[in-house]
Design a protein around this nucleic acid. Structure first.
Lengths: 138, 138
DNA sequence: TAATTATAATAAGTATAGTTATTAAGTGTA
DNA sequence: TACACTTAATAACTATACTTATTATAATTA
């Protein structure tokens, strides 16, 4: 089996999602939702378009995720006083508690996924991935 | 911005999918469908469970994809004469033509994604990804 | 100022990917 | 042989992610 880079990429990312989701489910959240909350935690008050861009996702995708997160009382939409088209996004207290609970799950995933790789190899991996991301970002 | 490995992984794989899908659409196929056909090309006559395992996907996911591929006359299901529960999968001539048309798309994606990385770096990247995959495979 | 263009959000529709549960058919064992 | 167990496929449901198209509002330009 030749293990092309492309197939290695899709396999590893699917496996990471699967691992995280299995553990996050009992806490009541999915990995993409957790990514939204994490990013929002660092940029509270951002609007949907801006958050979509940070997450490298289409605006409609984020819109639907915010719908569900709002329904779950994890995210609050407030009107932007300066732009009546836009919503500003905020975490609820419940979301902050969830993030605290999920921190060890994320850490364990990273530990398990990258076990056996030296710090230098990890740094090289990070550099290669950044390069790929920049090559494909338009 | 810290660029965690986990977020770099999900960003790069999403960007790769996006790039491929944009170009494959006019040919009338999605990236996961193309992966199914490619794998099937190497393992014609395999059953659905076996193909799902090769693709690191749940059987139900593959089942639905084969439904659509069959509808598009790209895949043919034939009964396994030795196991009446199972289907054996075969490519149609239309699928073979598609694969020929898509080959340069895949090659261009790889070229664009990994531009600027030395052969040694690519080999190291492949090794790291294999390690991650094996760490997470159960 | 009026018309045009751009932007923010979202609707409708489809594909992928997972969950649990079900059906049908093999396999093994008492 | 009869029963339990396993396996192959799939149904129903949900979440993510994309497409094109629409609505409302802002910004720009003629």
């Amino acid at each position: 089996m030749e293990d092309t880079l492309a197939s290695l990429f899709s396999d590893t990312s699917r496996l990471m999602r699967r691992y995280f989701d299995e553990r996050a489910r009992e806490i009541g959240i999915t990995r993409p939702q957790w990514q939204v909350l994490t990013m929002l935690n660092r940029h509270e008050g951002i609007n949907q378009g801006g958050l979509a861009e940070l997450l490298v996702v289409e605006p409609i995708t984020l819109c639907r995720m915010v719908d569900r997160l709002q329904e779950a009382e994890l995210v609050e939409r407030r009107r932007d006083p300066n732009d009546r088209r836009a919503w500003l996004l905020f975490l609820t207290d419940r979301a902050r508690q969830l993030l605290t609970d999920l921190k060890p799950v994320g850490e364990q995933l990273v530990q398990k996924a990258f076990a056996g790789l030296e710090p230098g190899e990890l740094e090289q991996l990070r550099r290669a991935l950044r390069c790929v991301r920049d090559n494909l970002t338009r």
